[in-house]
């Protein structure tokens, strides 16, 4: 359902991504791991074109956007269509601080999808209930704990009914017990059949929750496969070195 191929990106001569490809089945939970600065975030952001790749193509559902050369107006229009299927969650939450939690979740459906207000509110309340924030939905984000903020951010993304969710280190800013609140929401979504791609440094989660793990280094996918197999017996020397330094 998601197919990225040959994604390349360089910043002023620094080749950050050297033609990454990734095929995702519906319902899969994929973890992307790798050393700091290897291009994980850049890759994830290329999937919904927050970052414009120099080359490569992304297909999500029935929308394909192939990039070559400079970013055009037509590209932006196509990216807009593609983003309709993608939700994204950031390490620093990026909730809108001037709106309540409920309004954060309702805003995009009302403004972007022109959903009627009552309907948007019903959807938002249901989602907030689901991520365990039913009691605090009238609060402003600055009155939430980190874990609550990240769950609100997930609800906000889900309100747009995406078919794939992207997470860029969703728990790196959180204490372990708060992380668990967020991770359990993600596991629940997995159970519901949501397709999810997670950039993470949390190896326990990567191993226990994902269907597949991608190890990225030097702008390339070095190794990918079943988490248990990879963590138990990495094939590539670079993967082995990386995992050893962590454990």
């Amino acid at each position: 359902m998601l197919q990225a191929s040959g994604i390349a990106k360089s910043y002023g001569g620094n080749d950050v991504l050297r033609g990454l490809s990734l095929d995702v089945e519906r319902g899969e939970l994929i973890s992307i791991i790798g050393p700091s600065g290897c291009g994980k975030s850049t890759f994830l952001r290329c999937l919904n074109f927050l970052e414009h790749p120099d080359a490569g193509s992304v297909r999500i559902e029935d929308v394909t956007l192939a990039c070559q050369g400079s970013w055009s107006r037509a590209n932006e229009a196509q990216a807009h269509r593609l983003r309709a299927h993608v939700g994204m969650v950031f390490q620093s939450f990026n909730l809108f601080p001037h709106r309540t939690v409920l309004e954060n979740v309702m805003m995009a459906p009302i403004q972007v999808k022109r959903v009627a207000r009552e309907q948007a509110q019903a959807i938002a309340c249901e989602l907030l209930e689901k991520v365990g924030l039913g009691a605090v939905k009238e609060r402003y984000p600055d009155r939430l704990s980190g874990g609550q903020k990240q769950r609100a951010a997930i609800a906000r993304a889900l309100a747009m009914k995406p078919s794939v969710m992207l997470y860029d280190e969703p728990t790196s800013a959180l204490d372990p017990e708060l992380s668990e609140e967020v991770l359990s929401v993600m596991r629940a979504l997995d159970e519901d059949g949501m397709t999810q791609i997670v950039v993470t440094h949390d190896m326990r989660f990567a191993r226990a929750a994902s269907d597949r793990v991608l190890y990225v280094e030097g702008g390339e996918v070095v190794e990918s496969g079943d988490p248990d197999l990879m963590f138990a017996d990495p094939k590539d020397a670079r993967t082995r070195r990386f995992l050893r330094t962590l454990l």
Partner: peptide
């Protein structure tokens, strides 16, 4: 990150400015 979050929610640039950036 505010602009990025808005764009990721598929707002247009103008919507992002009007609803998210300018009020803040």
């Amino acid at each position: 990150g505010q602009m990025e979050a808005a764009i990721a929610l598929n707002m247009t640039h103008f919507q992002a400015l009007r609803l998210v950036i300018v009020p803040q």
